[in-house]
Design a binder for these strands. Structure first.
Length: 806
RNA sequence: GCCCGGGUGGCGGAAUGGCAGACGCGAUGGACUCAAAAUCCAUUGUCCGCAAGGGCGUGUGGGUUCGAAUCCCACCCCGGGCACCA
């Protein structure tokens, strides 16, 4: 009598069993070789969505697969639990962000549990946990001591919607906030920064050694934006006290400088402006500073309005010619020196500007003969450049820099697009920055023994969105750690990306009360062998975490040689519905819950694996899940020891069935290593179809179940237990294929004539070229086409293909 | 504008220079059933043909090769990243 496949009961049973047995808990002294598999910890927004399911399905599959290969697999999970949504909810409902957040975590954990993905929950971290806050603050203080955290006044990105400043990385290309979509405005504010630029070069170079998607590496390279060039001083005509320093990547073109440009915010603007130009310059500067970042960054608009003459002249050090100095909004204060030499012959922006303002254009690089464009930025022999004439670009650059250095007015430099990381946020629900402001001593760090600095519970959220900390007397008023006199606390909190920059280290030693983590514990597991998450973190989180790893290693908090946190990265594709990204804010969620309650977690997991290549974006369709669901039903009827849906293979066929099982093992094992899970599922389906036709053997079914155990853990565990009383499939070893058994007895040889398939003949795999040709020539179809003629050429690729060319 | 991806049946996709379309969805037909669902079996790129068989087919056009979805060149379309960065 066949048994029922009671999905709900079976999935619950095994989820309980794994938790109870601690199958996926590991100790730091586990003697097995270690493997650290990590999915990006989630922001707890309630029940899991399909993006989580996809992420954790891949992660769990790897955890179970590596475990079956004999590794001690560290598989932790936690929650990125600080952030604005909890604060917005507090404003709406009056619930404290902690209560709100803990409730969302409970919901998320429950749905993660129903997916069946396994974690060592003993190591769970939550960003808002006082212990975690303590160590985040402790790390902040170490960065402060080392000069890697500092405070400065700067024009920063202010998001009116979020009522806080943002890091450059959090502002989208169109000048809007990545979170709220509001237009970000510039404000001059004093803020906290982390000196990520100190690691710009290392962050760039170490990318080479990482097993990461090229796409992500390229995005990081672009973001860091290294450019080599030179900086040098231009003498201001008639002003011995004044020099204008410019940055260029093309010092070889200096002979072609016909004017210079400074940014409207440049500190020397006043000095450079002559009296008769003063009104015009003032109007220009006023207009530009009033423009939003978006307006300023548009390439559109009449060029006439984009610059103004200062009245001053600077001297080209290469040919001693005086050229006019302009202000223009296309030169940015934040990059290089905020001033440039303009060479219209080799730079299109300068070309356009020169045309508009009637400035000279001198080519200093010979463009190719067929050049039809305007400015020519490519390589070629230098012209109109006296002692540089005839040299190629690279040689000329070197010689030009030598000249500047010999003259003592300039030097070779490297510039980065990367800016320091602005980490302070004017928010309540974040990790407080642990410093106080003392009237006598200025910024004073809170003593280590007084950590953590925690936000008070009894707070009132203001409709303006301002942080309640700014108005909370009990929190604000404190004493100076140095002299004990009254002082005021910092009310800014840290960017939540600070929390996520070291959580993967805390997992290795989550219980440590003396330190954020022990170096030996970190050494045991780090770097993360496989990190899995969404492509949306390509720059933000992944760059910050890399910076933290390097800084912590240099500060002797992490092991010295541990300079990269994530050895191998996999970024899964997005899930879309009807072409747009599935998200809560778009209101187009298909919740996993409805599938847990019907077809079950195994079918949902298989569907995610089967939908397409893991890295690709996928369009969600409900229809497809029917396929994986009925496949599992089919598997059940096949493997149920009490079932008779599929007869045993006849004695003559059983050997061939077992041989096919060995081939399946070889194929699927390889597909797991290549992350080709969609074809691995297909192979298992194909094999199941094969057994329905040929009849089953015990070995075939057992192999199939073992190969599917990481993909569909519940149903395979249940079937295995029914077939092998008391055994747990996930505690067994991964199967290996016997190469002798896996070998084919006959293969199909394709016979082509002139590259077109004309016949297929069964041959032994050991066939040689001569035998192939003889067989092919004996084929009636080939003879018909040959018609007695002599083939020009015969290409034989034993044993699968022969091509006869006439 | 620059830099990455990608374009294959009605749909999701497979094929690491060697049988294009595995596997699944959908569709059609059959078996089972009083009937339906479920299940099982079969067919399913397209055109010509009763059939056997053959022609055509991987965005477009060229090229390399005995052989190209795969490599090269040019172009078109879609997605993503960067974009006055000197």
């Amino acid at each position: 009598m066949a048994s029922a496949y009671d999905i709900q009961a079976i999935e619950k049973k095994w989820q309980d069993a794994w938790a109870e047995r601690g199958t996926y808990q590991v100790e730091n002294d586990d003697p097995r070789p270690s493997f650290y598999c990590l999915c990006m910890y989630p922001y707890p927004s309630g029940q899991a969505h399909q993006g989580h399911v996809r992420n954790y399905t891949f992660g769990d599959l790897i955890v179970r697969h590596r475990t079956m290969h004999g590794y001690a697999v560290l598989s932790p999970m936690g929650f990125d639990s600080f952030g604005l949504p909890a604060e917005n909810a507090a404003l709406k409902t009056g619930t404290h962000p902690r209560i709100f957040t803990d409730a969302r975590i409970d919901e998320l954990k429950a749905s993660i549990r129903r997916l069946g993905s396994q974690y060592d929950w003993r190591r769970e971290v939550r960003s808002h946990d006082p212990q975690y806050i303590k160590w985040s603050q402790w790390i902040f203080l170490r960065l402060l001591e080392a000069g890697l955290a500092y405070r400065k006044k700067a024009p920063v990105n202010w998001c009116p919607g979020c009522q806080t400043v943002l890091a450059n990385e959090q502002v989208l290309a169109d000048g809007t906030c990545e979170r709220s979509g509001d237009v970000v405005v510039k404000r001059d504010l004093e803020q906290w920064f982390f000196k990520i630029t100190a690691y710009a070069d290392e962050l760039l170079h170490d990318l080479d050694q990482l097993d990461w998607p090229d796409r992500v590496k390229t995005m990081q390279r672009n973001w860091i934006g290294r450019s080599e060039g030179a900086e040098f001083d231009l003498a201001v005509q008639g002003r011995d006290d004044l020099k204008l320093r410019v940055f260029t990547t093309r010092p070889d073109t200096t002979f072609g400088m016909t004017y210079a440009v400074v940014a409207p915010e440049h500190p020397l603007v006043d000095e450079l402006t002559t009296d008769d130009q003063r009104d015009e310059v003032r109007q220009f500067v006023e207009r530009v500073t009033l423009e939003s970042e978006v307006e300023r960054q548009t390439t559109e608009g009449p060029l006439e309005k984009r610059g103004v003459f200062t009245g001053s002249y600077v001297v080209n050090p290469f040919n001693e010619r005086a050229v006019p100095v302009y202000l223009a909004d296309y030169v940015l204060m934040g990059y290089g020196t905020g001033a440039i030499m303009a060479v219209p012959g080799e730079d299109q922006r300068d070309w356009d500007f020169a045309q508009t303002y009637g400035l000279d254009i001198v080519r200093t690089v010979q463009p190719p003969d067929d050049w039809e464009g305007e400015a020519y930025a490519g390589d070629g022999p230098a012209i109109n450049s006296e002692w540089l004439d005839g040299l190629d670009k690279e040689t000329a650059i070197t010689k030009a820099i030598d000249f500047l250095e010999a003259k003592g007015i300039g030097t070779r430099t490297v510039n980065y697009r990367l800016r320091d990381w602005l980490v302070s946020r004017q928010r309540f629900w974040g990790c407080p920055i642990p410093v106080v402001y003392c009237p006598d001593h200025g910024v004073v760090p809170v003593a280590d023994e007084d950590l953590p600095v925690l936000a008070p519970d009894e707070v009132e959220f203001r409709p303006t969105g301002e942080s309640p900390l700014k108005f909370h007397e009990g929190f604000l008023n404190t004493t100076c750690p140095i002299d004990g006199k009254p002082a005021v606390r910092e009310t800014d909190t840290m960017d939540t990306f600070v929390d996520s920059s070291w959580y993967f280290l805390r997992f290795t030693d989550a219980w440590n009360e003396d330190r954020p983590f022990d170096k030996d514990a970190a050494s045991r597991w780090m770097p993360v062998d496989q990190y899995i998450g969404g492509i949306e973190h390509a720059i933000l989180h992944l760059m910050y975490a890399r910076f933290f790893m390097k800084a912590l290693a240099d500060l002797d908090i992490a092991p010295k040689d541990l300079r990269e946190p994530f050895e191998r990265l996999f970024t899964q594709g997005m899930i879309r519905l009807g072409g747009t990204k599935m998200s809560k804010s778009k209101g187009n969620l298909i919740t996993p819950q409805q599938f847990f309650d019907t077809v079950g977690a195994d079918a949902l997991r298989l569907h995610h694996l089967f939908m397409g290549p893991p890295a690709d974006d996928v369009d969600w369709t409900d229809a497809g899940i029917k396929g994986t669901s009925s496949f599992l039903q089919r598997l059940w009827r096949l493997a149920d020891p009490d079932g008779d849906a599929v007869p045993d293979a006849d004695e003559g066929v059983a050997l061939e069935v077992n041989r096919a099982a060995h081939r399946l093992i070889a194929r699927v094992s390889d597909e797991y290593e290549r992350w080709s899970y969609n074809t691995a599922v297909a192979a298992c389906m194909e094999f199941t179809n094969f057994l329905y036709k040929q009849g089953k053997t015990g070995f075939a079914i057992d192999s199939l179940l073992l190969l599917m155990a990481p993909m569909a853990p519940h149903v395979t565990a249940e079937l295995w237990e029914r077939r092998h009383f008391g055994e747990h499939i996930h505690e067994l070893s991964w199967p290996t294929a016997d190469p002798v058994m896996a070998a084919q007895e006959t293969v199909e040889m394709v016979v082509q004539v002139n590259g077109k398939k004309r016949d297929v003949i069964n041959v032994p795999p050991s066939i040689d070229e001569a035998e192939m040709e003889a067989l092919a020539r004996s084929s009636p179809k080939v003879q018909e086409l040959l018609d007695g003629a002599h083939p020009k050429r015969v290409i034989a690729k034993p044993p699968r293909l022969i091509n006869i060319v006439l």
